[in-house]
Structure formats: C-alpha cells, structure tokens
Amino acid sequence: MAEHVIIKTVSRLMIPFIQLFSLYVIAHGELGPGGGFQGGVILGASFILYAMVFGLEEGRKRISRKASDFFNPTGLFIYAVIGIFCILGGGRYLEYDRLPLIGNEILASQLGIYGIEIGVGITVSAVMTTLFFEMARRDDD
C-alpha cells in the first residue's frame, strides 16, 4: 500500500485519536459503557491499523516483539497482584476495600477497580497486537 497516500494520511491522523479514545474507554468504565477490555481492544486495534497501513515491519519498529511480549502478562500480573495487596491489607483476595495505605473504603474500592481495569486493558491490547502480528506474518519470515 505504498502509494495509498490518503489512507496513510488519514490513519496517521486518526491513530492518536483512537488511542486517546481507548484510554478514555478504559478510564470511563465506572461511569459509562466500556472498561478495560473494550478499551484494550480498541488500543490493540489502533496498533493493528498502523501495522496494516504501514506494514508489519514498520509496525514492529513501533511495537517491538519484546515490548508486546512483555506487556502480555503484565496486565494480568497487575490484576493478580492487586488481589494479593488486598490480602496483605487484611481482606480477602480482591477485596479492594482493604487495599492498604488508602484508608477510605469507597476510594480504595474505586482505585482497585481502576487498577484492574488498567491491568485488563494492558493485557488485552498487548495480546490482540500479538495475535495480529503472529497471524498476519508471512510464512517465510
């Protein structure tokens, strides 16, 4: 698609907004539709769009294999560790109210939810990207 200037330009313009939107969706989960998963998918989709328009090679320059590999489990790790923090704070696993060092139960709960939404978003976007890169890759790579 080397010569498709329109697509490239439009994509280049749109991708930051898509990413911004995805962050909005992740953060907005408590207030409206959306959340970590949906936001993560959109974030992943933005990377996919980039790779499709500019080529996989180019895409891998932006998101290296190592980076996407690293983020695959990171989100899950954040999620699971938040649960462990709740145990350390004296609660049950994933009992956000008991997150240590926060004090206010509702606040702790909300922060907990935010934390896990971010975790979900990270893992989902990284995995979606990985899936696309691995599947779209030519056999001779």
Partner: peptide, 10 residues
C-alpha cells in the same frame, strides 16, 4: 458499596 455507577462494571 463500590462507587461505580455502571452496574456492569461494578
């Protein structure tokens, strides 16, 4: 209990 107004998210 959770402070989330989106019940689904809660």
């Amino acid at each position: 209990e959770t402070g989330s107004i989106n019940f689904v998210t809660a």
